[in-house]
């Protein structure tokens, strides 16, 4: 397997594959962060999470069009505007969905799963009617194009670096909010003991709505970042939803650190194997190993030590 390559080539192959894995890792982390909040903290299964992400991607697409039509000179910074817009819209939709759908189903997690699946079908059809069935892509501003050459054979694309930086900022932001802010404290209190949290004066309904909406908002940002490395179609979200759930479950549902660690493991394993095996076999093997490990260790990699 390795005999045909020289040592230097092998190094650069591994470096490039590892970098491709890092980009995949960033996408996984961005998607999984939202889910880790919604599923890990609230225990709600949101099958429409992928569609929230795609909504963010479509908003970025629309913003890029608006900027190139009306504000050509500001095109370089459209991406930041798009990201904020994507967050606001998905946050609002998330709050609406929580109000209309999720809050009636907190006691029936399996039913939430079905209802949000229904929601995802509806959203997919709406995207298809509004944006068409074909995949769309955005034009990147000039400063995001091109790549940085580290050595003769190792080149790193700038948009990949940007996505990674963005992921880092958002991950740190979420961690700060969860573990350092008053709101995060309330969320964790509600998760641990809803009745007691209510009794000490936390408005649990409001916390639930904010938590769900924030998870959706992060999905929106993830979708916005996603447009930089791939094109968006009405069903793109569905492709990622299983992977993302596995990432969250594998990491240990209630641990943010676990989510990041498992996203790293899964993405690196997949992209390294992809070079040597066919893409589908790499994916099958990765998923099988993850499912196998989950069968041996159902609580995931990083589990809270609590008795149930």
């Amino acid at each position: 397997m390795f005999a045909d390559y020289s040592m230097a080539e092998l190094t650069s192959i591994f470096a490039m594959q590892a970098f491709a894995g890092l980009i995949l890792f960033s996408v996984f982390v961005l998607m999984a962060l939202g889910l880790a909040i919604i599923f890990g903290q609230m225990g709600v299964i949101n099958m429409a999470h992928g569609e929230f992400m795609i909504l963010g991607a479509y908003i970025t697409y629309l913003t890029s069009h608006i900027f190139s039509e009306y504000a050509q000179n500001l095109f370089d910074i459209y991406f930041f505007v798009a990201m904020i817009l994507a967050f606001i819209v998905t946050f609002a939709l998330g709050a609406l969905v929580e109000w209309g759908l999720i809050r009636h189903l907190y006691k029936r997690p399996l039913d939430t799963l079905l209802a949000t699946w229904g929601l995802s079908l509806i959203l997919q059809q709406i995207y298809r009617s509004v944006f068409g069935a074909r995949e769309v892509g955005v034009t990147l501003p000039d400063w995001l194009m091109g790549s940085v050459a580290l050595s003769e054979s190792i080149e790193i694309p700038i948009n990949g670096l940007f996505v990674m930086g963005l992921t880092l900022i958002i991950a740190v932001g979420v961690a700060l909010m969860m573990y350092r802010s008053r709101w995060g404290c309330q969320v964790r209190a509600v998760v641990q003991n809803r009745t007691m949290a209510g009794a000490v004066g936390i408005n649990t309904e409001k916390v639930d709505r904010m938590t769900f909406a924030l998870g959706c908002g992060i999905a929106g940002i993830a979708g916005s970042a996603f447009t930089m490395i791939g094109s968006t179609g009405p069903t793109s979200g569905q492709l990622y939803i299983v992977d993302t759930f596995l990432v969250v479950v594998f990491g240990g549902a209630s641990s943010l650190l676990g989510t990041i660690a498992s996203a790293f493991t899964i993405s690196q394993a997949q992209s390294t194997m992809e070079f040597f095996l066919s893409g589908s076999m790499a994916k099958v093997l990765t998923l099988l190993v993850v499912v196998g490990i989950l069968m041996l260790r159902p609580q995931g990699l990083f589990a809270l030590k609590i008795r149930r």
Binding site: I45, L246, V249, K283, V291, L294, P298
Partner: peptide, 25 residues
């Protein structure tokens, strides 16, 4: 191992995805 409920649903779903990818691949 007393895995049930939501986790079981997600893992069976992953198995469905794996088998599909395997058959297509």
């Amino acid at each position: 191992r007393r895995v049930g409920g939501v986790y079981f649903a997600i893992i069976t779903q992953a198995l469905a995805a794996i088998l599909t990818i395997l058959i297509i691949g």
